[in-house]
Amino acid sequence: MAAPPSNAPPAMRSPWWLAAALVPFLAAPLVISGNYHYGVAHQALIYVVLATGYNILLGFTGMVSLGHVALFAIGAYTSAILQTSLDWPFLACLIAAAVVTGAFGTAIAIPALRIKGHYLTLLTLALGEVIRLLIRNFDWLTHGSSGIGGISRPTIFGVPFRTAPDLYWLLLFIAAAGVLFAWRLERSRFGRAFKAIRDSEIGAEVIGIDTNRMKVLSFAISAVYAGIAGSLYAHTLRFVSPEFFSLGLTITLLAMILIGGRGLILGPVIGATMLTIAPEALRFAKEYYLIGFGLVIWLSTLYLPDGLAGSLGRLVARLRPARQGRAS
C-alpha cells in the first residue's frame, strides 16, 4: 500500500534546515557529561542512521517493511563476529556489515516485487522473525541467546574512539554523512523515482520508470544504512544479543518515522532523537511511560499527519508567508 503523500510545505526542503538541525548535536557535549548521558546520545545517533535509512524505504518509496530490525541485527552480528573471532579492524567490520546487510536487503526485495501493500508488510514481518530465530539458533556462529560480548570500541588507522566524547563525535560524523546522503538522494533522479512509485505506481510505470529496479535499489540503500547502524551499535554497546532486536524495536523504529515525519529528511532525525531520549527522561515513571508513549503516537497521527518535522515546516511557512514558494 502506497503511503499517503507527504504534504509538507516545500519550505522544508532548504539545506539550511539541515545545518540548523546539526546545531543542537554540536552543542550537546557542552551540556551532557558522564557515561550515562553519553550512552543515550550514542544510541540516539545510531538510531538517526537506522531511521534515516528506513525512511528511504518507508517514506520515499512507500513500502512498509517490518523486517528492518532484522537487517539492523545482521549488521550488528556481522561486525561483532568479524571483530571478535577474526579480529578485523573497525573500518573493515563496518564496510563488511554494510555490504552483507545490503546483500540481504536486496534478497528481501526480490519477493517484494511480486507482492504489494499489506501482504508485503506481513511477508517482511515473517522474514524478520525468521532471521532473528536463525540468529538465536546458530549457536556456533552467534552464541545463541547468550549473545556476543567483548566487542571493542572503534579505532580508525590507529586513532582510538574509546572515550565517550570521542565516540560521540565519530557517530555524529557518520550520522551527519548519512543524513546528507539521504538529502542528496532525495534530489536525485532516484529519489524522485522512489517518490513517484510511492505516490502512484501506475503513474510511475507509464512514464517509463523501471519500478522493479527502483524498488530493489530502495531496499538495498536502506539495508546498507541498517548495516552501518548495526555495526555502530555493536562497537558502541560492545555487546549484541538476539533479544534486543525484537518486535518492540520494530514498533519503536516505525514510531520514530511516524512521529518525526515520514518522507521528510529531518523526520527520522527528530523522531529517533526524541524516542531515544524520552524513555530515559521518563525513567521515573517506570513502565507507565508506555502510556504516555502510546498517547503521543495516537495524538501525533491525529494532529501531526506529517510528523513533528512537517509541522515545524508548516509553522515556519506560516510565519514567512511571502517566502512560501520554493526557489528552484
Partner: peptide, 11 residues
C-alpha cells in the same frame, strides 16, 4: 492513464 495518476507528493 485514466484518473491522471500524477504524483501528489512531488512538485
Amino acid at each position: 492513464p485514466q484518473g491522471r495518476r500524477i504524483f501528489p507528493g512531488l512538485t
